[in-house]
Design a protein around this nucleic acid. Structure first.
Lengths: 174, 174
DNA sequence: GACAGAACTGTCCGATCGGTCAGTTATCGT
DNA sequence: ACGATAACTGACCGATCGGACAGTTCTGTC
């Protein structure tokens, strides 16, 4: 039942956003009462936290794996990591994009700004100038949103296209 | 006063989303009563419609300008047009991204899906395969989101970086 | 100063939200 | 069969939302 609730919540949050989905919406989708949701989860935020728990750790390990790398090597690893996580957690990414501002102060998920800044750093190098960072943001956000939007092709094809596209954006040979 | 209301609404909608901003929030920001808002505008949706009215026409003329072009010429013109509109209407773009699903059925603004699909067509050509379209989506969404997010550089520098970045994503020489 | 109309506001309304709680039903070891 | 515990629910609560409406204040004209 907990699993059913989480599955429905993930689908509805991704479709209509966190704020755009009421507990009653989830309950109707699951086929139980609203009170039953709050029996399994203390409140609405807890449901969200549970959905985002896995990706918090994964992003942390990705950043650790990226930390010692530099230059083109770091950029290619960052792209591969971001593409992989976007494909595996595309619905969570969509939730994050739909309700960024409301979810930023959410304690459970790591500070999104810090993580994304670190990923851009890995893609374009730790340069003080802002100009090269634009390409990094374009690559990062392009991957996230294109995955969240969804294109009617198999996952592995999508992975290859996203990776080569991001490489081109960053000026790397693909 | 109407202008003050629209300015406050635009800023608040861009910061917290359409659904995340109440009429009371806007009234407090303007410094008037909620009832006063509803004297100048028939309802909350009308405020949003007025904010999006200009960009509807602009996107239409952009698509008309793009229609006769083909190949690389069309792609370069599409990128230039999208970059230009993103920079000029960055707050509207952000609103659209924050509340896509809730705003899709909004009658005032043109069907977002149709417009974006046409822009991707212009960028990658009207090909039946889905694979090349991924790069188109990456370029389009990369421009939109990077602009909406904001980078601390002058507009004209941003324009140049966004344009060359999108060209690279699409495999065009910049 | 009197008047008309625009501009504005306080107050109320129904709907919906997240959340609480007492009470009911199902499950299971003994 | 029975009691304990988990699972679940209907009814309710306070807060907040978008919006309606009667009444008040401001502003310009004669």
């Amino acid at each position: 039942m907990r699993a059913d609730i989480l599955e429905s919540a993930l689908r509805l949050f991704a479709a209509h956003g966190f704020r755009g989905t009421s507990l009653q919406d989830i309950a109707s989708d699951v086929g139980c009462s609203k009170a039953s949701l709050l029996y399994h989860f203390t409140n609405k935020d807890t449901i969200l936290s549970e959905l985002f728990a896995p990706i918090g750790h994964e992003f942390e390990t990705l950043l650790q794996r990226l930390a010692p790398l530099q230059g083109e090597e770091a950029a290619r690893a960052a792209v591969a990591g971001v593409v992989d996580m976007s494909l595996r957690f595309r619905r969570q990414v969509k939730i994050l994009l739909l309700d960024v501002d409301a979810l930023l102060d959410h304690p459970e998920l790591p500070c999104v700004d810090d993580v994304t800044e670190a990923l851009v750093d890995a893609m374009v190098g730790r340069v003080p100038e802002q100009e090269p960072r634009v390409a990094g943001w374009m690559a990062l956000l392009g991957i996230f949103l294109t995955t969240a939007r969804g294109v009617a092709i198999p996952d592995e094809t999508m992975r290859a296209e996203l990776t080569s596209g991001a490489f081109r954006t960053l000026g790397l040979s693909s």
